[in-house]
Design a protein around this nucleic acid. Structure first.
Lengths: 233, 233
DNA sequence: ATTGTACACGAACAAGTGTTCGGTGTCAAG
DNA sequence: CTTGACACCGAACACTTGTTCGTGTACAAT
């Protein structure tokens, strides 16, 4: 589009006054307040200039209401950094919790039982709220399971603990994963290491316990353990 | 000062409406707009309630100007703090986290080392954010410690875990507490039971381990364990 | 010289908006 | 039963505020 004519001095003064007035008063000025501050004695002239600013895309006007002025985003950018809206400020003030569905249990004797729909949030799911500061990486594909029984003790995970997991079918060395041992009909939580192409080392979290070595074909990774939470009171 | 009467339902609705209106319109509402939205047909009643909110320190009013309302800082804190009288949208977006100072470490070889000032929040403290749903009872006197070493394994607590505790010098049967064993120069986390007036049973969290029986005089309770959190990824 | 546009202005008016008045009803305290 | 405080209400009014009208000036283009 053609280059626009620069704003007149009066129009610049009007914008600046409106901006400052909004900061000080938490409301826009009236036509008469604008006129009084930029030396325009006639409400008609102020009206004319406001309409010109509207035409330039810098203001929005609501007709037939008092103080019916609002800056457009373009004008906000013009002022060199938009002032946050109240809701933005509130959002910033609050860490968004990561809401993780508690979708079931984990026990030694069976594989993890996840819902078919990939644990999308349902009204009846319990939710575990976790601060994002406590989690790393992608927080979108997480789910939580409650531990049943004391078979995870070698992972230092107790009956009733909550395990936060990410759905993941492969593991990097050292990652703690839930693995289903097919031959043993057992789910276990251990640190995973590729020993050889055919052998996997599963290292208990308890450093005083020995690892187990299993055939890679026997291992089905069911998810990565991101976090363990235990309520003791 | 005397405890103030709670805001009436109408007054809460008025505040909520004003808040939402300001966010949407970048200006305060008129008396009539307020009335129309909280089912008050008389401008006089709206005026009466606005004056009551002003009296409570939640609003400022400029006389004889249109849209002469402004929230006070007290009201802003209220909205920012996500309590009962704010809008549902803000309230829903904000779940008050319990902010717990991470004040130090816990290790077997020494008692818990707490700051003299009772772990009041300082700018340089690390904070652990926990959803209140994960905690029971008083959330005001909590602190967090990072576990050093693997000596807490019998409590199924690993090196690097975070323990959320409440300062407490006595224990009910079954509560998990941090105890300092004076004769052994050891801190341990165990479930506490009064066996006899002179004897205490300390039961490991690991059900496969045996309890220890110690002289009550040898035991110094340093806090109750509310929660254990482990980051594994 | 004429025309069109931009800019300017005072005044009047219509509508928006806040304040005041006189009144009613409820409830607790005396 | 009376009184006072609180909450509520419709109506009227005063004032604020935005819009419209008619007019004037300056300047560029024709």
């Amino acid at each position: 589009m053609a280059k626009e004519k620069p704003l007149s001095g009066r129009q610049q003064n009007i914008l600046r006054f409106i901006w400052e007035y909004v900061q000080e008063n938490a409301r826009p000025p009236t036509i008469r307040e604008i006129g009084g501050n930029v030396n325009i004695s006639s409400t008609s002239v102020v009206n004319y200039n406001l309409n010109a600013l509207k035409k330039r895309g810098l203001l929005e006007r609501d007709a037939d209401v008092s103080r019916g002025l609002r800056f457009t985003e373009q004008a906000m950018e013009m002022f060199g950094g938009a002032v946050e809206t109240v809701s933005e400020a509130v959002s910033d003030a609050v860490d968004s919790l990561v809401r993780i569905p508690l979708v079931g249990t984990i026990a030694a004797g069976r594989p993890i039982d996840l819902p078919e729909t990939g644990y999308a949030l349902h009204d009846d799911d319990e939710i575990v709220d976790v601060s994002p500061a406590m989690l790393r990486g992608d927080t979108n594909s997480l789910f939580a399971l409650t531990v049943k029984g004391d078979s995870m003790i070698d992972a230092m995970v107790n009956d009733g603990d909550i395990v936060i997991m990410r759905e993941q079918k492969t593991a990097e060395n050292g990652e703690m994963v839930a693995v289903w041992l097919k031959e043993d009909d057992t789910t276990t939580l251990k640190h995973f290491y590729h020993e050889t192409p055919k052998t996997v080392r599963l290292q208990p979290a308890n450093p005083r316990m020995d690892p187990i070595y299993v055939d890679a074909a026997n291992v089905e990774i069911q998810g990565k353990v991101m976090m363990v939470m235990r309520q003791t009171a």
